[in-house]
Computed example of a mutant assay.
Amino acid sequence: MFALKLGAALVLGLLIGVDRQLRHKPLGIKTSMVISVASCLITMVSIEAATALPIPA
């Protein structure tokens, strides 16, 4: 499941990067892909940590 989500983030980051490249905006394809995957990974880790670690009452 993690790989599927990271793959989707990679593809969406690629699409964002291509769009920005075609419009001659700063921030390239690789940078968009890295940012998308890193954001997805951080979000998935934080969700897993929140569900795995109980909050003390």
Rank of each mutant, 00 (worst) to 15 (best):
I35Q: 11
L4W: 12
P56R: 00
L41F: 14
T31M: 13
S46I: 06
S46E: 10
L6M: 00
V45T: 08
A57D: 00
M44C: 07
P56K: 00
V37Q: 06
A9T: 08
P26M: 12
R23D: 05
R20F: 13
I42P: 10
S39H: 10
A3T: 09
A50H: 00
S39E: 15
M44N: 14
I42H: 05
L12W: 04
A50Q: 08
E48W: 04
A57E: 13
A49S: 14
L12D: 08
L4V: 08
S36F: 08
V34K: 11
A8F: 12
M44F: 11
A49Q: 07
R20A: 07
A9L: 15
G17S: 14
V34W: 10
M44L: 12
E48N: 07
I29Q: 01
T51K: 13
L22W: 02
D19Q: 09
T43P: 04
P26V: 00
A38Y: 14
L27T: 12
T31Y: 09
L41Y: 14
P56L: 00
P54N: 11
L6S: 02
G7H: 07
L4A: 11
M33K: 04
K30A: 06
S36E: 08
K5G: 08
L4G: 14
S39W: 14
L12N: 01
P26Y: 09
P26A: 10
H24P: 01
P56I: 07
L6W: 05
L12H: 00
S32D: 07
G28V: 01
I55S: 11
I47Y: 11
L14S: 02
L53C: 03
P56W: 01
L53P: 08
A9H: 05
P56H: 02
R23E: 06
K25R: 04
A9M: 14
L4T: 04
I42K: 04
A9K: 15
M33E: 03
K5D: 11
R20W: 03
T43D: 15
L15T: 05
M44T: 14
Q21P: 05
